[in-house]
Design a protein around this nucleic acid. Structure first.
Lengths: 112, 112
DNA sequence: ACTGAAGTATGATCGGCATCGAAGTATCGG
DNA sequence: CCGATACTTCGATGCCGATCATACTTCAGT
């Protein structure tokens, strides 16, 4: 009978192009403390980080929600490596769309 | 009997000191489109503007609410002139607390 | 005093969002 | 195949904030 085929899945999520970034979405993203924390942890790291490697005060399903908001705003890029979803900042694209904004935010968050 | 005394009132509202500014309050303030519009209109103007002189898509009481949020975040200074409440940006203080943030926001809002 | 103008205060409504738990999916190691 | 791991999806809940209408206050002009 039908052997449950395990065709390789395409699990790469949608990423908006820089031209589609909106300030509203970016602000909606970074106004949340948990998401801002994610951005700061990414900014402090040189390499990509898996979702599970973040120090977050919420459950897994909520974390997934936050990563999605950040991705849809254009702030992060996500891709799978095995079962892990890696995350990295889209520094250049964000800088191109909204010059100085990301730096100002991260350094503002670093104070205090 | 008691003549309704018209003692001069102190109607000057509370303004936080720059040291008390928090990034969270500033972002909570500017994430709202109406409030961001207020900030941009103030930034584009050289002089102070009365509450009523703004072009806003909400009723008066709601506008009052928005101005208060902006003031409590430290973004604007308010003072009465007659019955009019004047508003102006606290550029220097905000710049001192969160360097580059206000400029980045206003210029980001100006794009598109 | 009276009136109008400019805001503020208050209470109610209403929608959106952060959160969680439970169940589902995909991948990797034996 | 069998777990185990790492996330995602889904539905429900609960709260907070934006909005409005109404009533009130303060001031300016007459």
């Amino acid at each position: 009978m039908s052997v449950t085929r395990t065709e390789p899945q395409d699990r790469s999520p949608e990423h908006p192009a820089p031209e589609a970034f909106t300030l509203q979405e970016v602000l909606d993203a970074v106004v949340d403390p948990v998401r801002r924390s994610i951005v700061c942890q990414l900014s402090a790291s040189t390499s990509a980080k898996s979702c599970g490697s973040f120090d977050l005060p919420v459950g897994r399903s909520t974390a997934t929600h936050h990563f999605r908001i950040l991705r849809e705003a254009g702030l992060i890029r996500q891709y799978y490596v095995g079962t892990s979803r890696m995350n990295e900042l889209r520094r250049e694209e964000v800088e191109e769309a909204f010059p100085g904004l990301l730096d100002a935010l991260v350094s503002a968050a670093a104070r205090r």
